[in-house]
């Protein structure tokens, strides 16, 4: 799942200058298709709210977020998590109304709703 390694400046518990490597992660995603919309569920635990970004650019849906870090000097007895930033991009089809995209963050899952453009309504005609 690791796409690339980006270099980012964070205040590290070091003297002098030291490179801090932050890994960019593509969050695991489930996509559901309903009659009127698509719903994306992205696994992004422990994200700083202010870093969470969902936007459309050139027909692509961008999702970004940064994980909360630990303060320096913490004494780790076990460290399995990584300092990551989440990033993922999806191509949007013509049928998606980019003006009505909504997102909510709950329990570490980012849920994005993409409404389909209201096309021709299919009306059922009752035969008498």
């Amino acid at each position: 799942m690791v796409d690339q390694v980006t270099v980012k400046n964070t205040s590290a518990d070091v003297t002098g200058v030291e490179e801090v490597k932050k890994i960019t992660y593509r969050p695991a995603t489930d996509i559901y298709e309903m009659a009127d919309r698509f719903v994306l569920l992205l696994e992004m635990p422990n994200v700083k709210r202010e870093s969470l970004k969902v936007y459309v650019k050139d027909g692509q849906l961008h999702i970004e977020g940064e994980k909360r870090g630990y303060s320096h000097g913490e004494k780790f007895l076990l460290r399995e998590s990584k300092d990551v930033r989440y990033e993922r991009v999806f191509e949007l089809g013509e049928d998606i109304d980019t003006d009505s995209i909504s997102a909510r963050y709950n329990q570490g899952i980012l849920e994005i709703s993409l409404m389909k453009k209201a096309g021709e309504q299919i009306k059922e005609i009752r035969i008498q």
Partner: peptide
């Protein structure tokens, strides 16, 4: 689940990643 454990003078804190679990 991914786990981190931090120790300080008063306690131990276990951080367990389980997104989407109720």
């Amino acid at each position: 689940p991914v786990v981190d454990i931090i120790e300080n003078d008063q306690n131990y804190t276990y951080f367990v990643e389980i997104p989407g679990v109720k």
